[in-house]
Amino acid sequence: MPVLKRLSLAVLLAVPVAAHAAADTYAVDPMHSSVNFTVDHLGLTNIYGRFNKFTGTFSVDKAAKTGSLDASVDTVSVDTNENDKGSRARSRDEHLRSADFFNAAEFPKMTFKSSKVVFSGDNPTAVEGNLTLLGVTHPLTLNLERFKCNPAAGNAKERCGGVAVGKLKRSDFGMKRGVPNIGDEITLMLAFEGDKQ
């Protein structure tokens, strides 16, 4: 093989490896992370809820100003602190799991897959991506209210975390039951922490 061809091959193989090595990847630590949401109720107040089971990873390369945030949420784990139906026919959380809302039996996962991380200076400020819910995918931008990394110290690995907040219309995903008594606009909040892998 001519020297030039060998060199080209070596460069081609090396470039992706180098690029990959530059981005630090973090696995979301569920103990110190949460996926929360709020929705208006009757124009009177906000109902707050969360999902108790989720996984996720994120990466950041401050030098290249790139990154990612991917999350997968088990919709059956929806929890609005109202799972005891008492003498009623059903609890609110049971209703939220049904086909009227999250349809957890048919669509067990809600996912967010980032396409771009927006930086302001050296700091990531927003994550653009796609949210898939009820089999429907729509763009969603999560604004990073904060993002910070603590350096490795002793046995502890480098650890990063942040809070990402975005707004979506649930009717865009086909979740129309109860609108407008139960608000159409949902505020989604991902509070995440993770150790460098």
């Binding site: 026919a89 059903r90 049971e94 209703h95 799991r97 049904s98 086909a99 009227d100 109860g178």
Partner: peptide, 9 residues
């Protein structure tokens, strides 16, 4: 259906 948590059905 109402007793089983489904307003739609």
């Amino acid at each position: 259906a109402l007793m089983s948590a489904s307003v739609g059905f």
